[in-house]
Design a protein around this nucleic acid. Structure first.
Lengths: 247, 247
DNA sequence: ACGTTGAGATTGCCG
DNA sequence: CGGCAATGTCAACGT
């Protein structure tokens, strides 16, 4: 039986699996999809169901008791007191969602225009592989150490005692985020720690590029000699197709 | 009009807000809850809707077009080609979900039995406040430096060059997780960095306690002198009530 | 209201 | 299939 089934029922629910959970008696929506997944919704709390079972799973249906289980030993038990409605509809396959404006797109635009991050910066490689994961952008700064002279002293990297690669020239690792928090700074720090073990790259410094950077992330980044650059998505998209803005 | 509304409709959808997204024409379930939130489901893909708008938001309904918007400028537009079904039900307030087995419970059990983490360890305080957030457990090791002698050399902390408080006695900061990843190591590292600025506590070392620890997290933790302890939830619960296991 | 943290996170990607 | 990182993460809680 293909299609989606909607049941309004007064029920209690028990889940045993990754945790134990229980729902007292109340009227709720039971949503059974074609893939067998079941979700139990109340009339609030946005889109997240109170309980659910993700596919693949099997539904065993008795008159007053549904038992949904999967191969990992998780069990969802729905004890049905009364059914108020029970309808089914065949929806067919969904053509799917198209998205625009996510981190991947921001990374593409920055890869095409690394100079936005810092004048003269050139892209070496996107998704540069390290043994702890890929760095979003690895760039090279032809100006090298000379660059530091032109920077405001307040933005200059700390002295050589820093724990990560806080230097002022050569290679540059860029972490791209839509919204950057302290975790993004830690992530970039890990990469820098790793990249600076490579004698062919060392010294490598870091740039955190995001549409928005949390204040605490900015403080942490600067204390580690990591530059923060806030990028404007629309403006960047304009640079990507400059011929469109000529007239 | 209180209650939940279920509409089966052929529609296209556009979302503009944190990103841009579009859904081509297809038949879907539109779920409108009493709080005004709207979610659009296909017949698959677990419980997450294809598109949605979380409350608070307002729904403006025209014959062939629903417009859902919030105060942050996000807009969800549903162009309705045909309505196949449209039913409403008043579900009433839900008494809510009870849970057991989450991190908070694991933290309680470890607070009551810190010796599980390391013989002799004593609890100083749960949720010990620092200015960058609370440490799950702050403990004290009466054995102090003498402990290191009994440890396997392979597990011994690194030399004093480590960037965070990787020492071998006195106070111990414990980070509790159900599943620990590298981010948990970073989190604990930040706390250690902070705690070791306090002369009354220094030196403070770290223990990462979790039901499961990712291999990369283990490597990173040990490179920073942080001990990893895998705890068994059921076993720990047994220790909490030892009188029940006497016979 | 804002920030921080946990979550049965889910989902997609790539090894 | 397992590890890893992004997500319009969401939701709960404390300040």
């Amino acid at each position: 039986m293909a299609g989606m089934r909607l049941v309004i029922a007064s029920c209690t629910v028990d889940y045993q699996g990754r945790l134990d959970a229980h729902l007292p008696l109340a009227t709720r929506l039971l949503l059974v999809k074609a893939d067998g997944s079941v979700s139990i919704h109340s009339d609030g709390g946005a889109y997240k169901p109170l309980n659910w079972m993700t596919p693949p799973c099997t539904l065993a249906e008795e008159p007053a008791r549904w038992t949904v289980s999967n191969t990992k030993g998780e069990v969802l038990t729905i004890n049905i007191e009364r059914i108020h409605a029970d309808v089914s509809h065949d929806l067919g396959l969904d053509p799917g969602l198209t998205k625009d404006g996510v981190e991947a797109h921001l990374q593409e635009l920055l890869a095409a225009n690394p100079g936005v991050l810092e004048s003269g910066l050139r892209l070496v490689r996107r998704e540069y592989a390290t043994d702890i994961g890929p760095v979003d952008l690895l760039c090279h700064d032809p100006a090298g150490r000379a660059l530091a002279i032109t920077l405001d002293p307040a933005e200059a990297p700390p002295t050589a005692g820093g724990s990560v690669g806080a230097t002022d020239g050569g290679y540059v690792a860029v972490e791209v985020k839509r919204r950057a928090g302290v975790d993004a700074v830690d992530q970039l720090s890990r990469y820098l720690e790793r990249l600076n073990l490579d004698g062919r790259l060392r010294p490598v410094r870091g740039i955190l590029a995001a549409q928005a950077i949390a204040p605490q992330a900015r403080v942490l980044a600067e204390s580690r000699g990591i530059r923060c650059v806030v990028v404007d998505y629309d403006e960047l998209q304009g640079k990507a197709e400059p011929e469109l803005t000529l007239f």
